[in-house]
Simulated assay, not measured.
Amino acid sequence: DSVPTRQHVGQCFVPLEQRFNKRPCTWSIVKDSREIGFITCRFCLGTTPAPVRSLHVVNASRADELRLAWEPPSSDGDLPLRGYRIEAREPSTRISAAGFPGEGFLDEPRTASAPALQDPSVTLKNLSGNTVYTIRVWAVNEAGSGPAAEVLGQTGPVAPGLCGEARISVEGEPTEPTALSIEWEPPIESGGADLVAYRIWLRPVFQDGLGGFFPADGFIDLGLFEHRGSRTQKAPVKLDQLPSCSGAVCSVAAINAAGLTGCASEAPVVWASNMDRQKEIFEL
């Protein structure tokens, strides 16, 4: 078998432009500035992929994770997909140098990657709880990253903040109170879930014969008290639950609907007229 002889007969200039992509087109073959023939061809011009579709948050129950899912792009740019690039950033409204509000971000992005599967998804980890993130996903092929798809996602709730300082409300004569109540303000931060209850502890403080104070070894757990709106909260204290003391260190902790308990705020509460040295009690 003889090998066919190759012979150069002319040149054909085909512009690699998107308008000719995947279209049969006829081009002139020229030699020495003369048209000597024609060639019809169709070429594929590889580009970056289209944006991913249906980007959404699948699960945001955890405080430090967000699980995302999406559909592959409608076009892979005529090149095989290599995977996906993911970025999560915490948005912030900032004021520009000219005094106008603008969009910005508080910190460096959290990044991740995902393989080119039929049902792609990813779990972003090490996020801050009860925080809104701007999440962007890019499809990537040999030509690079395509346009980003964007969605907002919020991580799960965290424990509520500190309650306001507790104070005592006395009914009856100061020397012989008939009823006591603990009052406090709700925390400013609920942790991303509705406040539902409070837990209160009292640590009795006694006074010795020399006028000094000393705390009890244990705490009296007054139990749970339902949250009642944004107004001042109030919890009754039964006098028969208390030892023979004139004051205590009161701890109040908020609980939200996620079942998370915040740190307890501490404050001295005094209900006897001869015990007005609250600072000394609190310093214990």
Rank of each mutant, 00 (worst) to 15 (best):
Q18V: 12
Q278M: 13
T261M: 10
R82K: 14
E65F: 03
A197F: 00
P115M: 03
G77V: 11
E183M: 12
E87Y: 05
R228M: 08
Y198V: 03
A193V: 05
R6W: 05
E266W: 10
L117K: 11
F282H: 09
D208C: 02
L45R: 12
K279V: 09
R42P: 00
P51N: 11
G99H: 07
P177F: 08
G144C: 05
F20E: 09
S128M: 07
E90Y: 03
E90K: 13
G212Q: 10
G104R: 06
D217Q: 12
P186K: 06
P147K: 03
S2N: 13
A258R: 02
Y84I: 05
G77A: 05
H56T: 10
G99I: 07
F38T: 08
I168L: 15
E71I: 04
R67L: 10
A264Q: 10
I29H: 01
H8P: 02
L202K: 04
L124E: 03
R136P: 00
T5M: 10
S74K: 07
T40M: 03
H227S: 11
T5N: 04
S96L: 11
T178E: 07
R203M: 11
S246D: 14
Y133R: 05
S246T: 08
E150Y: 01
L202Q: 06
S28A: 14
D240G: 01
G211N: 08
P120S: 08
L284M: 07
P186A: 08
K125C: 08
A254K: 03
G37A: 13
G77C: 07
T232V: 15
S128N: 13
D76P: 05
E283L: 11
E171D: 13
V140F: 08
E226R: 11
L16E: 09
I220E: 01
S28C: 04
E280I: 05
S181R: 14
